[in-house]
Amino acid sequence: MNTNYKHVTDTRITISELMLPSHANFSGKIHGGYILNLMDQIAFACASKYSGAYCVTASVDTVDFLNPIEVGELVTMKASINYTGRTSMVVGIRVESQNIQTGKVNHCNSSYFTMVAKDENGKGIPVPGLIVSNDLEIRRFLKAAKRIEMKHKRRDEFDSDNFMPENYVEMLRNFNVKVALND
């Protein structure tokens, strides 16, 4: 049984970076790939700080780009541990952009990175448990647990050897897809 626990408040990390023209895509907005790279960096820093170990990205859930980021804006990313498993942690990340002349702040996206703590041989190692202290922290922990549960159910349903697409044809009529099964 794990006897090592840390408070969510002790896991928080914030980084800010000014967005430069070199970060822009062909439409003049900050490239989503650049933002994902920054998010991966803060997820690594947050998970490594929390676990005291080298961490790797296992998966990324729910990256919805809500608002574009402009060249010259200050991007701030806030991360904290939302959930802990045995060797894994879910890092919640909130991305905001601020127009430094007007002060206007936009929520650009929120995302969840699953990180795994590794030893020097690349094997997963146990991470501390999480102490949740308020309704928001409890909700974030449970939402992460539910996302993990749903991911396992989806994998079990669709990746099994006995998956039968014909059982889903009727459901597909509600989507923008045409089914042309070869018999």
Score class of each variant (00 low, 15 high):
residue 54 Y to F: 12
residue 31 H to C: 01
residue 80 S to C: 04
residue 70 E to I: 08
residue 35 I to A: 03
residue 17 E to T: 05
residue 96 E to R: 15
residue 167 N to R: 15
residue 3 T to I: 02
residue 155 R to S: 04
residue 33 G to W: 10
residue 49 K to W: 12
residue 12 R to L: 01
residue 23 H to F: 09
residue 67 N to H: 10
residue 9 T to R: 14
residue 124 G to A: 00
residue 118 K to W: 05
residue 69 I to G: 03
residue 18 L to E: 05
residue 160 S to W: 11
residue 132 V to G: 03
residue 170 E to C: 02
residue 18 L to Y: 04
residue 177 V to Q: 10
residue 130 L to T: 07
residue 175 F to R: 13
residue 175 F to S: 09
residue 149 E to S: 09
residue 162 N to E: 08
residue 160 S to R: 14
residue 116 V to W: 03
residue 141 F to Q: 03
residue 134 N to G: 03
residue 135 D to R: 14
residue 134 N to R: 07
residue 176 N to A: 02
residue 5 Y to E: 08
residue 107 H to F: 04
residue 66 L to I: 15
residue 62 T to H: 14
residue 106 N to K: 15
residue 177 V to P: 01
residue 139 R to L: 09
residue 50 Y to R: 10
residue 101 Q to P: 04
residue 91 V to M: 10
residue 77 M to G: 00
residue 168 Y to D: 03
residue 78 K to I: 01
residue 87 T to Y: 09
residue 12 R to T: 01
residue 6 K to A: 07
residue 3 T to D: 14
residue 125 I to Y: 11
residue 57 T to C: 02
residue 45 A to R: 08
residue 4 N to T: 07
residue 88 S to L: 02
residue 98 Q to M: 06
residue 177 V to H: 13
residue 26 F to Q: 09
residue 31 H to N: 07
residue 36 L to C: 04
residue 21 P to S: 00
residue 56 V to L: 07
residue 60 V to R: 14
residue 107 H to A: 03
residue 174 N to Y: 15
residue 48 S to H: 09
residue 117 A to G: 11
residue 82 N to A: 01
residue 113 F to C: 06
residue 92 G to K: 01
residue 9 T to K: 15
residue 20 L to F: 08
residue 17 E to A: 01
residue 77 M to C: 11
residue 99 N to E: 01
residue 147 R to D: 00
residue 43 A to R: 01
residue 97 S to V: 06
residue 157 E to W: 14
residue 3 T to E: 07
residue 166 E to F: 14
residue 33 G to C: 05
residue 41 Q to T: 06
residue 156 D to F: 09
residue 47 A to T: 05
residue 73 E to I: 13
residue 131 I to C: 08
residue 138 I to A: 03
residue 75 V to D: 04
residue 125 I to E: 08
residue 20 L to S: 10
residue 35 I to W: 10
residue 150 M to H: 13
residue 120 E to M: 05
residue 90 V to G: 03
residue 112 Y to D: 05
residue 147 R to F: 01
residue 43 A to P: 08
residue 20 L to D: 05
residue 182 N to K: 09
residue 144 A to W: 13
residue 55 C to S: 11
residue 49 K to S: 06
residue 14 T to A: 07
residue 134 N to F: 14
residue 179 V to N: 06
residue 17 E to F: 10
residue 182 N to W: 08
residue 49 K to Q: 13
residue 105 V to P: 14
residue 124 G to E: 03
residue 13 I to C: 12
residue 113 F to I: 07
residue 182 N to P: 02
residue 101 Q to A: 00
residue 30 I to F: 00
residue 153 K to S: 00
residue 53 A to D: 06
residue 158 F to W: 14
residue 162 N to S: 10
residue 126 P to I: 01
residue 171 M to G: 05
residue 32 G to W: 07
residue 63 V to C: 03
residue 4 N to F: 13
residue 130 L to C: 10
residue 124 G to H: 10
residue 156 D to E: 04
residue 66 L to D: 11
residue 74 L to E: 05
residue 48 S to W: 13
